[in-house]
Amino acid sequence: MSLSLSLNINGQMRAVDIDDPRITLLDLLRERLELTGAKKGCDRGQCGACTVLVDGKRINACLALAVTLDGAEITTIEGLAGEDGLHPVQAAFIHHDGFQCGFCTPGQIMSAVGLLAEGHAGDDPERVREQMSGNLCRCGAYRGITEAVLDAHRTLNATAREDAA
């Protein structure tokens, strides 16, 4: 069985043929498309290391079968930084030391980008913590992660205000 998918990955349309319906989005990205930024920490939706955006929403790529995603728009950590440099969330993670080993970091960052787009946490640290709880960090960088998300929230708000002005 061969299935043809059309995927928009990080802004680029790609025709992807897959020969196996078992392939998850995560394994497609990592093993077949050379996009290894998203990480496999548990492969069961329990750790969040594989978080990517699908049609603008954060999901666990390990539990999404690639065949179901024909036509989807996928953003991975590799597609986040723009030509003008790091995304504010990425910069904030560095500034606040929101990681140690870095393995969960692509997932944390994509999750944070998704969280900020959802707009339900605002500037409330407790809401940020709760809504970032789908991303485990064994090194224990949670304090920096929370600070980074709040900082990026402020940066993005300020940018939005400037754009509006």
Binding site: R30, K40, L80, Q90, I94
Partner: peptide, 13 residues
């Protein structure tokens, strides 16, 4: 830091 936040840091797998 930059390698890690952009997904360019390469782990074994």
């Amino acid at each position: 830091g930059e390698l890690k936040v952009t997904g360019q840091a390469t782990y074994a797998a």
